[in-house]
Amino acid sequence: MSRIQTRFAALKKEGRGALIPYLQACDPDYDTSLELLRAMPAAGADLIEIGVPFSDPSADGPTIQAAALRGLKAGATLGRVLEMVRAFRETDNETPIVLMGYLNPIDSYGPAEFCFDSAQAGVDGIIVVDMPTEEADLLDAHAREAGLDIISLVAPTTSNSRLFHVLRDASGFVYYVSITGITGTNSASAADLEKALPRIREATSLPVAVGFGISTPEQARTASRIGDAAVVASALIKTMASTLENGQATERTIPSVLKQLEGLAAAVRA
């Protein structure tokens, strides 16, 4: 079993959903983001999403845009992100790591090389925001060969028949973009989720993670119960950004983010 399968199976036994925090690689610098990454599991992260900085994150709101810029300024490259994952794996071989980003840096790195190097580094899954099912043949075979899950995204605009098309060969888990919008803006209501999830579950038996617009412990709890996992991104980055001085980390940076993460985890586990 893959790390992702093992983790979701274990949580199912525990009878709760997963909490998936997000951090942007090299935001605000490599060392801080690696330290934060290493501390996340103990603070309650069940899986972790690492954002790969891109110059033109057209599906992201202002918070993640700013984080990407800080990451790039601090020298983030895909190679550097993989280095970070390798360093994380020295001390943690269980927490699943999923990279989330845009296609061009991967395309530039080389799709086959990227899949191989990612798996070698200890990455479990990849989410490519601007690579819909219709274009996924670019990575599919390489990812399969490397044992990497390509995490399929579905949205409120995805019709029932399209859900079956998109999720036909899905693996790992399914990422439900719960609002029509960009990251860190609106939130879906519990009622929205109650309506959407059965539709998705018709088309897949994979766990469903709910993301976009989840910021409070209450929202994380709701999403992780109606779905199988809650992704929290912008809310954590907002906290991190508020602790920076002149774009640099301060002693408050890591404790503040971890404290918020603990609060989210407590709600998911309650």
Partner: peptide, 12 residues
């Protein structure tokens, strides 16, 4: 060419 957009936009 192609259609490299987020899933939300594909149906559109």
């Amino acid at each position: 060419g192609g259609r490299f957009v987020a899933e939300t936009l594909m149906p559109l």
